[in-house]
């Protein structure tokens, strides 16, 4: 399962890169990014954070559900007012992780990533950026966007194949006109 995920992600990025190369999706850093707003490196950080907020277990987590795609897409859409928060906040996450563990966030093992995020959540994260920007506010923002991307409608780029809806026990795609199949009522009697 893990292997196939990795494969599909790589395939997806390859495809996206070729689209980007033929189009003009150049990120601010000047390097080619398959994403709309995020740089390749930023997308990896978002993916890692989301993976801690909703980890994979017997059901897919935020990473597999495409939450990074949701966030990137909304950052050029309705959530564009949060672009600066993401640009600075994601750099801040790396500052915290370098200060605490001497490594970038994506290179940390899962337990240490959780430690970094818990520090943000408690507003006790080391890092220059957090002098000007509340670490907790940034983390709260990413938590709510991750919840939206994972539990919200797949049309917005997350919740791939309705994974979260199926996880909580809802049919996906939804069954329409279900009144006709209402099983809480006794079966209609044939009229004599």
């Amino acid at each position: 399962m893990k292997k196939s995920n990795r494969l599909s992600r790589r395939k997806f990025i390859k495809l996206a890169v070729s689209v980007a190369a033929s189009g003009s999706a150049i990120s601010c850093a000047g390097t080619i990014s398959p994403w709309r707003f995020l740089s390749g490196e930023e997308a990896q950080i978002v993916e890692a954070i989301c993976g801690q907020i909703i980890p994979a277990d017997q059901d897919p987590g935020a990473t597999q559900a495409g939450v990074v795609n949701f966030i990137d897409r909304q950052l050029v859409g309705h959530l564009r007012r949060h672009q600066k928060a993401y640009r600075e906040g994601l750099a801040g996450v790396n500052q915290t992780s370098l200060a605490r563990f001497g490594k970038k966030f994506v290179d940390l093992p899962a337990p240490q990533q959780t430690e970094v995020l818990t520090a943000l959540d408690k507003n006790e994260a080391p890092g220059e950026i957090w002098q000007q920007r509340s670490a907790k506010e940034f983390f709260d923002l990413v938590v709510s966007h991750t919840m939206q991307g994972f539990y919200g409608d797949p049309r917005h780029g997350g919740n791939r194949d309705g994974v979260s809806w199926r996880m909580v026990g809802l049919s996906y795609p939804p069954i329409r006109g279900r009144l006709r199949y209402d099983l809480t009522k006794p079966a209609p009697k044939e009229s004599a």
């Binding site: 277990d57 938590v143 539990y151 919200g152 979260s164 909580v168």
Partner: peptide, 25 residues
């Protein structure tokens, strides 16, 4: 709906991580 429910939890319950996902499920 599931997204609404992701904001509903008893006081003190975790709002992210494996435990929150388990709560939802």
């Amino acid at each position: 709906l599931p997204y609404n429910f992701s904001t509903i939890r008893p006081p003190g319950a975790p709002r992210w991580g494996a435990a929150h996902k388990e709560f939802m499920r």
